[in-house]
């Protein structure tokens, strides 16, 4: 699978909009975007770490990062997402309406919650 290189962060500050609560012990890298649509919440618990340039967009439900969860650089979480306590989500992973169990480790570059039609090209799935 191909991944575009992580782009340098262009926004000076992180951007927070909507109902977002962040525990004071959480650590959020530069260029992170936290956006909760109306009637949705984003909850960042104690000891959570979010890598640079990650985007969390709560839509149709809440995004909850439980205590000690960590998201690598360039992670995209969109829709309704729960990241269990101490889970580790590798960089440039996409989570679309998907949950991660407590203490689970998700390899970098994964896609969770993709329910689009899979087809086989050139004898290899999706390639």
């Amino acid at each position: 699978m191909f991944f575009p290189p992580l782009q340098p962060v262009s926004t000076v500050q992180s951007c927070v909009s909507g109902d977002v609560s962040i525990d004071p012990s959480a650590s959020i890298a530069s260029g992170v975007l936290l956006q909760a649509d109306p009637e949705c919440r984003i909850v960042i618990s104690a000891g959570v770490c979010i890598g640079m340039g990650s985007i969390l967009h709560a839509h149709g439900g809440d995004i909850v990062l439980e205590a000690g969860a960590i998201l690598g650089a360039g992670v995209l979480a969109i829709g309704q997402v729960t990241i269990g306590a101490n889970a580790c989500v590798g960089s440039i992973t996409t989570l679309f309406n998907a949950d991660v169990q407590p203490s689970e480790a998700i390899a970098s570059g994964s896609v969770l919650g993709d329910r689009s039609r899979q087809i086989v090209l050139d004898g290899r799935p999706g390639v």
């Binding site: 340098p8 962060v9 926004t11 500050q13 992180s14 525990d23 890298a29 530069s30 260029g31």
Partner: peptide, 10 residues
């Protein structure tokens, strides 16, 4: 929370 800025490269 700790948030640090990164200046946009000129």
């Amino acid at each position: 929370m700790v948030v640090r800025g990164l200046a946009a490269p000129p």
